[in-house]
């Protein structure tokens, strides 16, 4: 994490300044970080995408997607397909646009003043940035969990069934059943089943995050978006959430942002390595962590560069 801020700034300015790069080339001296250097220069090198990614059926399709926060571009011409029914991890140094990409998928960025996008994202082949799209029904098809646990100041039960409530569901049996099911899926049912009517704010951070996951999956979303769900948690809670992700990945497509390489290695089937708003390498997790195509990726996942 040597000079991430500097490099971000470099990319953001219109005239990229090339700085002395803080790395010591490993192995043969001729093995420079070609792709990363190109990105730092402001170019958009073609990402290295392993064929396995393209083989499987995709649920989200990002095509030539660009995003600007007012003047600064946070995402540069990203194209990627998210495979259905798998866990895909987005890794990369902080500030590289992982969250931005994730939040573009459920159009959370609409809430930010001055955001502009080009290119498109489609969810099950329907474009989500078309003017005809009702953003609310889009978000109903996606579940999202945030970096900091954000349970609402109400009971655990009400927290979990919130998405159903806003859809107008009132039948008690339906709500109770859905609540139990999703709390079980979120592996927290046994801990909270006796205190469903108590405030969710009384739970520990890890429990709160699992309640948030239960809330995100209660309405059976097509894709679950997780934005560094463990970064605010202690190691034990982190472990629990990771187990939980592995479990729910059987039923949902999961897109998870993490800056923790081990986590990505443990929970995900596919991994995309991002840098300064671009995809550097994207492929099956095992490949990316053991035999990556790029030296940058190898160094990044082993912690030698970042």
């Amino acid at each position: 994490m040597t000079n991430e801020t500097d490099s971000t700034n470099t990319a953001e300015s219109t005239q990229p300044v090339i700085r002395s790069v803080a790395y010591t080339p490993n192995g043969g001296g001729d093995q420079a970080y070609e792709v990363i250097d190109a990105i730092r220069r402001g170019e958009n090198p073609t990402p290295t995408v392993h064929p396995e990614v393209l083989e499987s059926d995709s649920v989200i399709n990002v095509e030539k997607f660009n995003l600007w926060y007012t003047e600064t571009q946070a995402i540069h011409d990203i194209s990627m397909k998210i495979p259905r029914g798998a866990v895909t991890a987005l890794i990369g140094p902080s500030g590289c646009g992982k969250s931005t990409l994730l939040r573009s998928i459920n159009r959370m960025n609409d809430l930010v003043e001055g955001v502009r996008v080009e290119g498109g994202i489609s969810l099950n082949d329907s474009p989500i940035y078309a003017p005809s799209v009702d953003v609310i029904s889009l978000r109903k098809r996606l579940g999202m969990v945030f970096q900091k646990p954000n349970p609402f100041p109400m009971s655990i039960f009400e927290n979990v069934v919130y998405p159903l409530r806003i859809d107008g569901e009132r039948r008690k049996e339906v709500l109770e059943e859905a609540c139990e099911k999703s709390l079980r899926s979120a592996a927290i049912w046994d801990e909270v089943k006796d205190r469903l009517k108590k405030s969710a704010l009384g739970l520990s951070g890890g429990q709160q995050q699992r309640v948030c996951i239960a809330r995100a999956i209660v309405a059976d979303p097509e894709v679950l978006l997780l934005d560094e769900p463990c970064s605010a948690l202690d190691p034990v809670a982190t472990l629990k959430i990771e187990e939980l992700i592995s479990q729910i990945s059987e039923r949902y497509t999961v897109l998870i942002v993490t800056h923790n390489m081990q986590q990505a290695a443990r929970v995900s089937d596919f991994t995309a390595f991002m840098y300064l708003g671009r995809i550097v390498e994207y492929g099956p997790t095992a490949t990316l962590f053991q035999t990556p195509a790029l030296i940058e990726t190898e160094h990044y996942v082993s912690g030698r560069f970042g």
Binding site: N106, L111, S137, K140, G143, F146
Partner: peptide, 23 residues
């Protein structure tokens, strides 16, 4: 973060105001 959580669940602006902001 409360508002974002609510929007993330597919709530409209008014639903967010009525169920999250006002309480």
């Amino acid at each position: 973060s409360m508002r974002e959580g609510s929007y993330g669940c597919g709530a409209s602006k008014w639903q967010t105001i009525w169920r999250i902001v006002l309480p």
